[in-house]
């Protein structure tokens, strides 16, 4: 169970997160929606400890994650709490290591059974041919599969996916989404899916959180938020999704509506 309380982070000139709070039950799935500048990536990076929050806490299974707690044991424990899959699989894998070596390095770090490498590869749909390949010999989809396997090797409670399908071709994106749904069914890992794409969130998540300029403007079950959006920004986001009979000019009107609501 992941519990985030009042996370705040300001960078010079911008507020990336302003009192962000949410909860993600074990095995649950939460979609963090927002555009660039909404702070969604900063929130994800604060969860895994790559960015230190100005204030606020991240709690996993009742234990507060404290980045100041040093030492190998604390580091490895934090790693087993939350793992992350990055956006661009072209740069998120070590170019020197083959797929199998990449997984073996994680397993060794966590003193886990290294014979699990083929099992992990199989779990994400990679075979023996890919096991010996370096990242540049793999396609985008295969790389992202490997990145998912690398995160799962640690057997985390929570898996954070930062725009994990945004860089992939449409037909590959669907394969990865299916894989994630299946991984969640099989291993019971909770998913925190960070994306700009409402349709993807709708497909993969039960709960959602809409971020705008570092603040949570709306949250709740995905179906409800998308069916009856309350905040003007959510309506703007929804209106921006192309669909048959869509009129982009409508979005301009929704933007004006939202800006008007912000004034008051």
């Amino acid at each position: 169970m992941l519990s985030v309380h009042n996370l705040c982070k300001a960078f010079p000139g911008t507020v990336a997160a302003d009192a962000v709070s949410f909860e993600l039950p074990s095995g649950g799935s939460l979609g963090l929606v927002g555009e660039s500048g909404s702070g969604k990536t900063t929130v994800a990076r604060m969860l895994v400890g790559l960015v230190r929050p100005d204030s606020g806490t991240v709690t996993v299974d009742g234990r507060v994650r404290d980045p100041r707690e040093r030492g190998r044991a604390a580091r490895l424990r934090r790693a087993r709490e939350i793992q992350m899959v990055f956006q661009d699989p072209y740069v998120s894998l070590d170019p020197r290591l083959t797929a199998a070596e990449c997984l073996r390095a994680v397993l060794r770090l966590h003193s886990k059974d290294r014979s699990r490498v083929p099992v992990l590869l199989d779990q994400v749909g990679l075979g023996t041919r890919e096991a010996g390949a370096r990242p540049h010999q793999l396609s985008g989809g295969q790389r992202q599969r490997l990145a998912i396997a690398r995160a799962l090797a640690v057997e985390p409670s929570v898996l954070v996916l930062d725009e994990a399908v945004a860089a992939l071709d449409v037909s590959i994106q669907a394969q990865i989404l299916e894989l994630l749904a299946q991984v969640r069914r099989d291993s019971g890992v909770a998913l925190l899916f960070v994306s700009h794409d409402l349709a993807v969130i709708r497909h993969l998540c039960e709960e959602t959180l809409v971020l705008h300029r570092g603040r949570v403007v709306e949250s709740g079950p995905v179906a409800k938020v998308l069916a009856e959006p309350e905040h003007p920004y959510t309506r703007l986001l929804l209106g921006s999704v192309p669909r048959p009979g869509w009129d982009p000019a409508e979005v301009v009107r929704l933007r004006r509506e939202m800006e008007a609501s912000e004034v008051f």
Binding site: V48, G49, L50, R72, R75, L76, R77, R78, A79, R80, I82, Q83, M84, F86, V91, S92, L93, D94, P95, V106, L109, H110, A147, R150, V154
Partner: peptide, 9 residues
């Protein structure tokens, strides 16, 4: 990928 190593602990 360097971040990934840090996240791995």
């Amino acid at each position: 990928y360097i971040d990934a190593y840090r996240v791995q602990g």
